[in-house]
Amino acid sequence: MAKSRNVTPSPAAAATAAAAPPQQPSTPAPAPAPVKQVAKSAPSSKQNWDQVVVNLVNHYQNKTPQRTKLIDAFMAFLVVVGALQFVYCVLAGNYPFNAFLSGFSATVGQFVLTASLRIQTTEANKSDFPSVSPERAFADYVVCSLILHFFCVNFIN
């Protein structure tokens, strides 16, 4: 892991300086600016990695509509719940395997459905879904969730 981090960024580090200026107007936050100035120096690989994350976070915070953020919060919650279940299963054993499976697949399924809803309602993806309006997407989402939870309850024993 550490090795790959040392090896791979070196071509990218040089390129970052070139790539950054067009990035600048889209992310007006002041944070990346000082990072970029030291980008050319040799020990910059770590900061470069930071910069990617910072760019990402900035983009997310500035460009995402409030509703989508709500969806994302729900998705994060599902990830946490799923991870908790998985950790429990690993630590305490999977004895009621039915229960674990249905609980876990409920979170996974709901996560996937929510992700699909998020994709379908994002403005940028509109060209991909000519036949799915946001309202239709939400209706689909509700129907699918109902079916998903029916199966889960049926399977939980």
């Binding site: 791979t8 960024p9 990218a12 390129a15 970052t16 070139a18 790539a19 950054a20 067009p22 990035q23 470069n48 990695w49 910069q51 990617v52 760019n55 990402l56 983009h59």
Partner: peptide, 8 residues
């Protein structure tokens, strides 16, 4: 994010 950073 921009494509160069994306490669990293």
């Amino acid at each position: 994010i921009p494509s160069r950073q994306f490669q990293t």
